[in-house]
């Protein structure tokens, strides 16, 4: 019995010491930017289908396009501006241009000690023009670094 106790104690101490002296990774391997995930849906059949081409950029940021007539985009990743309460994007679907404006709140979030802090967002509302876009629905208001769909764009 004493032998079992002693061995258990030694094992517990040995494992703990190994854990203490083991190397801690100091590099960040996680996603650090929270992007709004917008799935592209055809309104005729309600299927997740990529448009022929997708163009996306922030208002007054035409020189810095997020997507530039990109093909095969079934889910677009949209960066919200954490220093503003709303931001507007120009979105080109199949050559037709629409605008998409989001209202949201931003708050800091710790990713990890290695990666530091980022901004998460809570989506309040959105508005869009209807040249090519039919409707936009909110699926998940919380915009985080996880790979979860936030809105669906029907076109």
């Amino acid at each position: 019995m004493r032998s079992f106790k002693t061995k258990t104690l030694v094992a517990v101490i040995a494992v703990s010491l190994l854990k203490i002296v083991s190397c801690t990774p100091e590099s960040c391997f996680e996603e650090t930017i929270a992007l709004l995930k917008a799935s592209m849906y055809q309104s005729s059949n309600e299927k997740n289908v990529a448009p022929s081409s997708l163009t996306l950029y922030g208002l007054n940021m035409e020189d810095d396009k997020i997507y530039d007539q990109t093909k095969s985009v079934k889910s677009a990743l949209i960066p919200l501006n954490p220093s503003a309460e709303s931001c507007t994007f120009i979105i080109g679907i199949n050559s037709a241009i629409d605008t998409l404006t989001f209202w949201y709140t931003s708050f800091p979030h710790l990713i990890s000690k290695e990666c530091g802090y980022t901004f998460y967002h809570t989506l309040d509302s959105l508005i869009n023009t209807g040249n090519e876009i039919d409707t936009v629905t909110i699926r998940n208001r919380y915009v985080t670094t996880s790979n979860e769909e936030n809105i669906r764009i029907y076109y």
Partner: peptide
């Protein structure tokens, strides 16, 4: 958090918590 730097599409933000 005396300083916290955040880079994104909209530019760089340096803030504190």
């Amino acid at each position: 958090i005396p300083s916290f730097k955040y880079d994104s599409y909209w530019g760089t933000i340096i803030t504190t918590i």
